[in-house]
Write a protein that binds this DNA or RNA. Sequence first.
DNA 1: TCACTGAATGACAGCGCTGTCAATCAGTGG
DNA 2: CCACTGATTGACAGCGCTGTCATTCAGTGA
Lengths: 338, 338
Amino acid sequence: MSKEKSPRKPTLFEVAARAGVSEITASRALRGSNMVTPETLQKVQQAAASLGYLRNRLAGALAGGPSNQVGVILPSLSNIVFPDVLKGLEDRLEHAGFHPVLGISNYDPQQEEQLIRNLLSWRPAGLVIAPSGMTDASRAMLSGADLPVVEIMDIDTDPVDMAVGMSHRGAGLAMARHLIARGYRRFAYVGHDITNDHRAAARLVGFKSGLTEAGLTLTGCVTLAEPSSVALGRRGLRMLLDSGDTLPDLVYFSNDDMAVGGVFHCMAAGIILPDQLAIAGFNGLEIGQSLPVALTTTASHRALIGETAAACILKRLAGEDTARMTDVGFSLVEGGTS
Amino acid sequence: MSKEKSPRKPTLFEVAARAGVSEITASRALRGSNMVTPETLQKVQQAAASLGYLRNRLAGALAGGPSNQVGVILPSLSNIVFPDVLKGLEDRLEHAGFHPVLGISNYDPQQEEQLIRNLLSWRPAGLVIAPSGMTDASRAMLSGADLPVVEIMDIDTDPVDMAVGMSHRGAGLAMARHLIARGYRRFAYVGHDITNDHRAAARLVGFKSGLTEAGLTLTGCVTLAEPSSVALGRRGLRMLLDSGDTLPDLVYFSNDDMAVGGVFHCMAAGIILPDQLAIAGFNGLEIGQSLPVALTTTASHRALIGETAAACILKRLAGEDTARMTDVGFSLVEGGTS
DNA sequence: TCACTGAATGACAGCGCTGTCAATCAGTGG
DNA sequence: CCACTGATTGACAGCGCTGTCATTCAGTGA
């Protein structure tokens, strides 16, 4: 860190001068335009290298050049789901030379609105958002911003522009039907904070409607107003079993973290899976499948959601047509816990 | 998405005109300068709101205003460690109105260099990087860029500017000493791809040097050239125990994911923990502590690393002095698996 | 009354780059 | 030899904002 008033970084002008061409030619050369002679190209590259030139994309983007930033708004990074989505997103974006600019809304519509405003003010090439109850102002900004916007996770509501995700209602429903077909009849539920996590809530709704189809209802239900975790699932199951309600054959957990906690409780309490109690989760996390007894669950294609969202943005930027809704689906994983 | 050639978004000029003030006054008002009359402020805000004005920070940053973007380069998002760090980082940055701009290096120095160049070209306010073998060019760019740079995770090497992390060598060493004091003597190791993950490698080095102090050596060692996972740990332990080497009292795993896999193997194989075999990991993940038998491990303060790194950037931007090296430490967690 | 002060506002000149359109020039066919 | 074509190159004018340095003007004490 030199202390001497940092000698301003070289600009395109310097590079151009050194290469003996005009600024615009240097610009084109460095951006890899094909209307520059190989010799010119080399001269410019050499000049740039020898000066330690570093492109200024602020200026470029302001002058009308493209941006390679994509705003990404997620509700949280604590829930493993979102890092997974982010990973898929990053992966695809990076291959195209783009960078995600991240904002975390903490499930708060106001914060979300603020983030949208902030990220949009950098004039990104696109925006990906896992919505947390967007305000009207949020929607207005997004539809007025004239850039590709992908709403991810859910496809249960109508998007401003595009949506990529799966039906959580459908996942809950499918699991209920599957388990009923397997012969289970007494179902209970253990869940985390479903006020914030409306996707978990949607799964529960779907699950219940599956039960209703078969003339059943939940025999027990514990929801704890905390973020999901293994410890919480463990605690939740203990509470459920201690509650004195009819003992269930199967407990549906709000997600795999919780379900793994349930499995641990059974192990510690000497409850034999799946004979004395069956367990099902949601997400298809690696941990669940590596348990001594693999977890029955629904695999959500988290990374795929990210990848697909990125692909939508990139396609749109390339001027191609894109689907308004993309359902990445889900898949039932029959483990040994049911 | 209006189809009509998107009527250019209103600029500060429009807002100023509407409010009956000059551009610069509007600018000051919207940025919350205190040298604007309350009445002027209100007029400008009203004008901005009624026009749906959206600040353009590209222009602002180019014109010399501050940036609120911080480049963040991580080697991966697959390893839970990095989402945790990112979470800490984001958290602190967001409170100050900053956004991380993310790049993933995939443990590749060339990609890392490319990312540095790319992110720097957006003239961010600072840069946080978990280095993966920085090239000379990378170092040169960072030291020439005249912005706060924090290298995170390790503090075992000399940073370009600042470093925040812990000593992985020290963590391995401390664990070895602890276990030896507890009476263990026959140690084996099960690890993942330590060519890429040089922090895991450093822990192993430290661990071994602890053994050496006591006149011991590893009785067995399995390393598998794959990313760490629960399944891999499970497989690794099975391989180790099947290898025919002297049976260890304790297996040190490269991290908690791996160690949890080891615990699962024991459960499935009927090996009693810790009597027949003890297990230790690294990271202090929630899952390890929620196992039927809590995992002995070293808690790394991942989110704290992120928070601290963010704090360093922010402090430096505020003109305050910052420590060149910050050791966030680690803590031994005595679980039931040893 | 008058210089003097400080608060509020404004004029101006870029920040560093790229889109647009014009200019240049070697090569081509008649 | 000349008009014509296509490949390169360049001049120019901003993109939308903010730092810097005036300017204005009400209020103040002598």
